[in-house]
Amino acid sequence: KKPMSASALFVQDHRPQFLIENPKTSLEDATLQIEELWKTLSEEEKLKYEEKATKDLERYNSQMKR
Rank of each mutant, 00 (worst) to 15 (best):
K1E: 13
K2V: 07
D56R: 09
L32E: 09
E44D: 11
A8T: 15
L27I: 04
S42I: 02
T25H: 03
S62I: 06
L57I: 09
M4G: 07
M64I: 08
F10M: 03
L41W: 01
S26Q: 05
S7Y: 04
E43C: 10
A30E: 03
S62R: 11
S7D: 14
S5W: 00
A6E: 01
K65F: 06
L27V: 09
K46L: 01
S7W: 03
M64K: 04
E35K: 06
A8S: 07
E44T: 09
E35R: 09
P3I: 05
L41R: 07
E44Q: 09
K52Y: 05
K52P: 04
L32W: 08
T40M: 08
M64E: 07
S26A: 06
T54H: 15
L41M: 09
R66D: 15
R66Q: 15
E51A: 11
K52V: 06
E45L: 06
R59F: 11
K1C: 15
P3V: 15
T31G: 05
M4D: 10
M64T: 09
K55C: 11
L57H: 10
S62C: 15
S42H: 05
S5M: 03
P16M: 03
T54P: 04
A53K: 03
K65V: 12
E43W: 12
Y49M: 00
L47E: 08
E58S: 10
E43P: 11
L47F: 11
N61W: 02
K65T: 06
Q63F: 13
E44W: 03
F10C: 00
K48P: 11
K39V: 03
E28D: 01
T54C: 08
S26Y: 00
S42M: 00
S62V: 11
Q33G: 03
L57C: 11
R66V: 15
F10L: 01
A8Y: 01
L41N: 02
A8M: 00
K55V: 13
T31A: 08
K65I: 06
R66T: 14
M64Q: 13
K48G: 05
Y49H: 01
Q63D: 15
K2S: 07
W38F: 05
T54S: 14
R66I: 01
E35C: 06
R59M: 12
P3A: 03
K55F: 01
K48R: 09
E43M: 13
E43Y: 10
L27G: 05
T54W: 04
L9H: 09
K46I: 00
I20V: 15
L47A: 15
D56Y: 05
K52A: 10
P3N: 14
Y60V: 11
Q33E: 09
A53P: 04
K48E: 07
M4R: 10
F10D: 02
R59C: 10
L9T: 05
Q12R: 07
Q63H: 07
M4Y: 11
L41S: 12
Y60K: 12
